[in-house]
């Protein structure tokens, strides 16, 4: 099978989503993405990120507007096996009698005949995907016998094995250690270079400029969307997160003794950064994930908990 028969694209066309209880989670939302992109989706809790994913997947029907995937309506696109989706939380029975490799093999079903008998290339794809997320040695474990982060990696491996053109990841980094996070980002960049389209919801603001070329800001409707360089501005972040955002500024006079008036700003959503100046932890930024931060060097200026990603 040719690897890229499609030129993946994603178009969200003026959608409004109302849940059964009458709550309108998203209104009048529009944006579009094209091939070879990693797009960040940011917004506060309850801003509708997961809802947006669910409507792109056709799990909830918009009351207004439409979604097109590679120019096709959602159901048609899903049948073509071009979309992979890793939800925020897997709603599965962890006692199910399936091994890690069985779960990843499910990602290959769309490439198999109707009896779902794996061929050599399917087995290779499974092995490859497990290796990419560093779960090879766990491949024969029962799915429930894993830690939370390992479970996440398995489901990511399943979507990699699927070789989808459009990949939707709902908070893939929560509960995942820094090393794995870096590995996943590298993987995503690789897939971008292969021409795939990825939409990634994340609260991990610090790493967005590193690996996302586009950003969509959401708060029940699209506040701004476009190239990260244009959209990912302090003003926009302020608008998206309002007072919720943790804000922390170190003025020039506190920082150094010369006349440099520039200040250091640390903006964060849910994951508190560890801010260090010299060897002192700054008061307002007590570390929640201090274990993930590097030990401060003597000459360290600033270390955020996720700044190693750079």
């Amino acid at each position: 099978m040719a690897k890229f028969i499609y030129n993946p694209s994603l178009e969200v066309n003026d959608i409004t989503v109302t849940y059964n209880n009458g709550h309108t989670a998203i209104y009048d939302a529009s944006f579009s993405l094209s091939a070879g992109t990693i797009c960040a989706l940011v917004g506060v809790n309850g801003s509708g990120k997961s809802t947006l994913f669910k409507s792109i997947m056709g799990f909830v029907k918009p009351v207004k507007g439409s979604v097109t995937l590679s120019g096709m309506p959602v159901l048609t696109a899903l049948k073509q096996n071009i979309v992979s989706y890793v939800p925020q939380a897997e709603d599965v029975d962890w006692n199910f009698p399936v091994l890690v490799e069985d779960v990843v093999m499910m990602g290959r079903f769309g490439h198999m005949n109707f009896m779902r008998i794996p061929k050599k290339k399917d087995k290779l794809a499974v092995r490859d995907a497990l290796e990419k997320v560093g779960m090879t040695e766990y491949s024969r474990r029962q799915i429930g016998e894993l830690s939370g982060g390992q479970k996440k990696r398995v489901f990511l491996a399943r979507s990699i094995a699927q070789e989808g053109q459009i990949i939707l990841l709902d908070e893939p980094f929560t509960g995942v250690d820094v090393q794995t996070e870096l590995a996943i980002m590298k993987l995503l960049k690789q897939m971008r270079d292969e021409g795939r389209l990825m939409l990634v919801a994340t609260h991990n603001l610090g790493s967005i400029p590193d690996f996302c070329d586009h950003t969509v800001m959401l708060n029940r409707t699209i506040l701004d969307a476009g190239k990260t360089a244009d959209v990912f501005t302090p003003e926009n972040l302020e608008k998206t997160f309002g007072g919720v955002l943790r804000h922390f500024t170190l003025g020039g006079d506190e920082l150094h003794d010369d006349d440099d008036t520039r200040s250091v700003r640390v903006i964060t959503d849910d994951e508190r950064p560890l801010v260090l100046y010299g060897n002192k932890t700054q008061k307002s930024a007590a570390a929640k994930k201090s274990s993930t931060a590097n030990k401060p060097d003597a000459d360290a200026k600033i270390t955020t908990s996720k700044a190693e990603a750079k």
Binding site: L78, Y85, V92, F96, F109, R158
Partner: peptide
């Protein structure tokens, strides 16, 4: 089996 294990994914791959 996929349907019993993970209905959302079954739907996602167009079953």
């Amino acid at each position: 089996l996929l349907y019993c294990f993970d209905q959302a994914y079954a739907r996602a791959i167009g079953l």
